[in-house]
Design a protein around this nucleic acid. Structure first.
Lengths: 169, 169
DNA sequence: GCTGATATTTAGCTAGGCTAACCAACTATT
DNA sequence: AATAGTTGGTTAGCCTAGCTAAATATCAGC
């Protein structure tokens, strides 16, 4: 179920709207940075996704399972909302997770209309193994860098996180 | 064509394999960086993907179109290979692009079995508009940062690019 | 001018989205 | 307490976009 790519192609464009006057080339440089950052993010995730393929379970299921494992059990509707998917879609996804023994439906004691979805021990194990593989891949590459480069990346990630948090998105 | 997400969940884990001895905490710190980098990349792309949705054309089609626009016309088989998809799948994708007037099939003069796929002027325009939107979104956010932060990001992107290139990924 | 390889298309399958229609159960209002 | 409306979940039916296998057309070599 690949969800995929977009290829931005190499830098372009005139300085765009939204570039405050910071000298004539400032906007252009920022937009070139934007393009490269976008492209780097795409390639990074493409690399890491391969590790997820090794789990034998599809990305949507893996993603839902990780919500359950890291965020705890919740109702089907909540899970659907977390995954930005319709309840109908999630209902089927949970069927698949349940069939694989990775999650289970348990009746909600407080509301008998609702079902709570819970990761099984097997689900937790499989997700943890996957996360380990994924992070290990990236960790290995990061470890091959010079310590100064790693520090530079760490600062950059902090900056990015701030920027993305602001955007609520 | 949603393709999606993986949620790594917050940091974890013991120092993993692949961490050369650099002091006791080095591996753990690197793997925390790996987790945060992964997460930042996911959130960044999720943000930018919204702009692509505004084009009204699906991501796989957009991606194939961008290959044609930035890389030039090519045969269906080549395009399929570029997109890591089977020729049969690409044949249908090209049907859709052609129906939307964004690309066209032209007979290959050198090999009458083959078809060359070419972006139309409308295809180029639409892709350029999309790229502009996407980059503009990111550019606007980057422009809101301090100049020093932008410089830090630029160095980090260069480091990442090197790391990813090495991986041939 | 056969024979085998190669490029594309067509047919039919699957997974994972969606909406619409439905049932069961909860909530509120008489 | 009955009834009406709302909410949670499932089922049915459709779509897109992957896949493989098989059909078709052309090419290349002998």
């Amino acid at each position: 179920m690949p969800v995929k790519r977009a290829r931005p192609g190499p830098g372009s464009g005139r300085p765009l709207r939204g570039a405050p006057a910071r000298g004539p080339a400032a906007g252009a440089a920022t937009s070139a940075l934007a393009t490269r950052l976008h492209s780097a993010a795409i390639h990074l995730l493409r690399l890491l996704r391969r590790e997820d393929d090794a789990t034998g379970i599809s990305a949507p299921l893996l993603s839902a399972l990780s919500v359950l494992v890291f965020g705890g059990p919740r109702t089907l509707g909540e899970l659907a909302a977390a995954e930005q998917v319709r309840p109908a879609t999630m209902s089927r996804a949970v069927d698949a997770l349940a069939a694989a023994g990775l999650a289970e439906r348990v009746p909600d004691p407080e509301d008998r209309r609702a079902v709570r979805i819970r990761a099984t021990a097997a689900g937790r194990r499989m997700l943890e193994a996957g996360r380990r593989r994924r992070v290990a891949t990236l960790t290995a590459r990061l470890d091959a860098l010079a310590a100064a480069d790693r520090r530079a990346l760490a600062s950059a990630v902090a900056i990015l996180e701030g920027m993305l948090d602001e955007a609520r998105g």
